Structure formats: C-alpha cells, structure tokens
Computed example of a mutant assay.
Amino acid sequence: MFGLKLSHITSGMLPVLVGYTGSIAVIFAAIEALDATQAQANSWLWALGVGMGLSGLVLALIYRMPILTAWSTPGAALIAVSGEGIPMEQAIGAFVFCGLLFLITGVTGIFAKLTRLIPPALASAMLAGILFRFGLGAFEALEQAPVLVLLMLATWLAGRLWFPQLAIAAVLLVGAGFCALTGFYNEDTQFAFEIAMPVWVTPEFDPAVLISLGLPLYIVTMSSQNMPGVVVLKSAGYEPPVSATMNVTGLTSMILAPFGGFAFNFAAITAALTSGPETDIDPSQRYKAVVVSGLFNTLAGFFGAVIISLFLMAPEALVLAIAGIALLGTITASLTAAMGDAQDRDAALVTFMFVVSGVSFFNIGAPVWGLLMGLAVKFVLDRRLR
C-alpha cells in the first residue's frame, strides 16, 4: 500500500486504541444523559467512527500531513454534564449549530482572532470544571468496588512511570480482565455482534439549548482540542492548513450530527502518536499512519453496536473508573494552565468553581455562566491594575 511500513500501521492503530479506551466511557455517559435508545446509541458510535475516520483520511491524503481528526472528548463530557433533561432533537440541533460555527470559523479564517477573545486561563478553567466530575467519579467508584478501582489506579500509576502512551489501554485491560475473572460483569445483558446502522434524528433549534449546549460545545472543542491540536503539529515541524481542516471538520459535524456525530476536530493528544519520528524518520511519510487510523476508525464505527454492548455488560464501577482515570491527565493540564498565569488566576478560579457547582439560570448551563463570570472578574481586576 504505497510504501506502507510496519511503523505506519502500528502508529496508525495506536490512536484508535488510545482514543476508544480513553474516552469511550465519556461518550457512553453523554449518550445516557440524553436518554438515547439502543439504536440511537449504536448510531452515535457509527457516526463518530466514520466521521473521524473519513475526515482524517481525506485531509491526510490531500495535504500529505499527519492531520489526525477526532471526536471531542471534552465535548462529550460537556454533553454528559449539561445534557440531562434536554430532548434528543434539541441536542442534535445544538450539534448542528456547533458544526456551523466550526465551518464559519474556517471559511472566515478568524480562528486566531477567536482564540484571542477567550483568555487561555479561563478556557482551561472551564474545561477543568467540566471534567472535574468525571475525575471525581473514579474515586467515588471505590465505594462500589474498592479492589477493582485500586487495581486500576495502580495500573495507571505504573503506566505513568514505564509506558505512558499505553497507560489507559493497560488500565482498561486490567479492569476488564479482573471483572472477567471475578464474574463482575452484568449477566443480564447479552453480548450483541451486529453492524451499527445510522439512525436519523431531525434536529430542533431551541435558542436556549443552542446557547447552553451548542455554544459551550464549540468553545470547549476550540480551546481544548483544536488549539492544542494545531500546536502539536507545529511542534512536529508542520504548518497545518487550519482553515481547510476547520472546513472539513465543520462540514463533517453538520452532516453527521443528526446521526450522533456531535463534534469533530483536530486530534490533540493522539496526534502526537502519528506525527513523531517513531512513525517515520521522513516527516513527509508520516501521513500514512493517519491513513491507517482513518481506515481503522471507519471500521470501528461500523462495529459501534459491539462496543456499546460491551459497555452495557460492564459494571458501573469499571465505566466510572476508566472514564475518570483517562481524564486525570487532561484535568491536571487544564488546572495547571488555568492557574499558571498569576494575573488571571482569580478569574480562572471563579470560572472553575462556578462550572463545578453546576448552577444554571434561564436554562443556560454552568459552563457558559462560569466563563462569563470569569470574564467579568478579569475585566474588573485588569482595570484595577491599569
């Protein structure tokens, strides 16, 4: 396959493994928050796999760069926290709206201007606040299954020391193996081997939901996925086509939103797995790993029903633990970035605490209000400094 090497295959498969094992539990929580049917849940996995597979494949082949795309894991966490009580049709409308914002950002070329409007410290604080509940869930699961969760935490710690790129995959394998050996799986749920089929949900556009879910989904994805994704590629020596990529991911989000493809973006953490010298000494050949990832992601999408059934069989403690442990690194990085700038530290703290509180007004969720409160605090303090 056009000079494909073993390193291209292994580097291409690794982001798929890390992506699914590291965030599928968060996706599952988002699906549950919107009270999706089994068919709709299968469709979500189909749309997410096919969407990031084909978008990454197209970008890699056109630009000959390792432009890996992914679903928005922080976006899924936002949906899981803020989506309860929102009808599926209105949530889908918010997803379409978010995709439209991505497309407008790409077409107008205002990515850099938009990122400057939101201070990085406040964006990081909002993300940390959204993910905080998931991290806490891993430790709350200790009450349900202390031996299982402690074993998973020990595996994560060992992975951080000796095999950081595979730490989350190892945590999932150890947790799943322990449950299999101890009969901890839900015996009432039958394993289903079937091909996932897309299920259309007609979007409804409710202004309050667009503001409380669609806008935060856009902000979180732009600040925590697209911005770091661009930085990862630039640090590897590439000049990615930012606007073109935003156009592709925006269109992909809009087209697949009715099927559950809530948001697609630059891959951030997993992008480093395909853009380094481990993939290929020649930087011009590393895009082939993304082609491999695209094929495997698309294939995984069609087997979304299998993935869903596996998680339905899993005990709640396993799902809570893997979701929380997988996000510990992101929470750490977000809190570090939020508190790193002394000038914006107070504003970032207000943003973080407000988002963690979960308080909402006028059907607009805590992430938006937290960001607005943080901006207000920053405005007042900056005026005092001047």
Rank of each mutant, 00 (worst) to 15 (best):
N265Y: 12
I325V: 11
M246W: 08
I307G: 02
L335Q: 06
S293K: 03
S309E: 07
G304V: 06
A333Q: 14
F352C: 02
L312R: 14
G294Y: 01
G374C: 02
A342F: 07
G374I: 02
I364S: 04
T252E: 01
G301D: 01
S360Q: 01
S253G: 08
A244D: 15
D282K: 05
G276R: 02
A347H: 02
L320A: 15
A348H: 10
F266G: 00
S275V: 04
V290D: 08
Y287E: 00
A314R: 03
A300G: 12
A323Q: 01
L310R: 02
S357C: 03
L349M: 09
L318E: 06
F354I: 13
F361R: 01
P283K: 07
A342I: 10
P277E: 15
F303H: 04
A337F: 06
M373G: 09
V356R: 01
F352L: 09
T270K: 07
V355R: 05
L349F: 09
V359L: 14
S284I: 10
M373R: 02
V368C: 08
L273P: 12
S275Q: 07
L295K: 07
A347T: 05
P258L: 01
F362N: 12
M353F: 15
G276W: 01
V306T: 12
A366C: 03
S360R: 00
I255A: 10
L251S: 12
S293C: 08
P367A: 09
A366D: 08
A314S: 07
G276H: 03
A338P: 08
S360I: 00
F311G: 05
G365S: 14
A338G: 07
L335W: 03
A257D: 09
G329S: 10
L273T: 14
